[in-house]
Amino acid sequence: MLTMNNITKVFRTDLVQTYALREFNLNVGEGEFVAVTGPSGSGKTTFLNIAGLLETFDGGSYSLDGEDVSHLNDKARSRFRNEKIGFIFQSFNLIPDLNLFDNVDVPLRYRGFNSSERKRRIEQSLEMVGLANRMKHLPSQLSGGQQQRVAIARALAGEPRFLLADEPTGNLDTKMAHSVMDLLKDINEKGTTIVMVTHDPSLAKQAKRNIYVRDGRVSELHEVAAFAEEESQTTAKASNG
């Protein structure tokens, strides 16, 4: 599904070059739920941006869903993001002026679906996150957890093969965080590949596989076969405390 070989990313300023990623290698299979962890400045976010085709890289190769995406132009990358990738962000990034329906509609518009198809998908995905009855509300009228659900609905509406989540529960309280994680696990069960970036090891544990990034490289691999619900709750509490 996702294969990165020797990816290098350098940030240049006038004075120094900083390697955000160096010889970064990662392979994520179809249907996996991978958590990428690591301390601040380790390169997690750079990894996520490159994985999501939001940023280009300087060396190595990257293929996604069987296609080499190293040399796509901006338009093709946009198209790729639109069709194959769903994003979930820590701060939700809903558009404050648009109601829930229109927010979920955003990626579908760029997809070029006709209006009945868009309507069907929006209703379906909002249904899935349990907010179908609040379609006309503005994001500001929702709680944080609800907002993140809308963001998830937006990510799912295009039925992407691949979901990228960046600290999806970082701005949520424990209870909400918990339900959001449940939702992600559900989605994963249904076959969507998920890569989640978090600095929180307890959250990472809930993924099927953990990757630890440090100084721009993958330094350790954790395989997590299964997880217990109680455990996740306590760790989440601890991390929030």
Binding site: G52, D74, S78, R81, N82, I95, V106, R154
Partner: peptide, 15 residues
């Protein structure tokens, strides 16, 4: 922020 989000969900520069 909105522009970034739109770009992320697949809007091209042209859009």
């Amino acid at each position: 922020a909105e522009i970034g989000l739109r770009r992320a969900v697949g809007a091209s520069k042209g859009d």
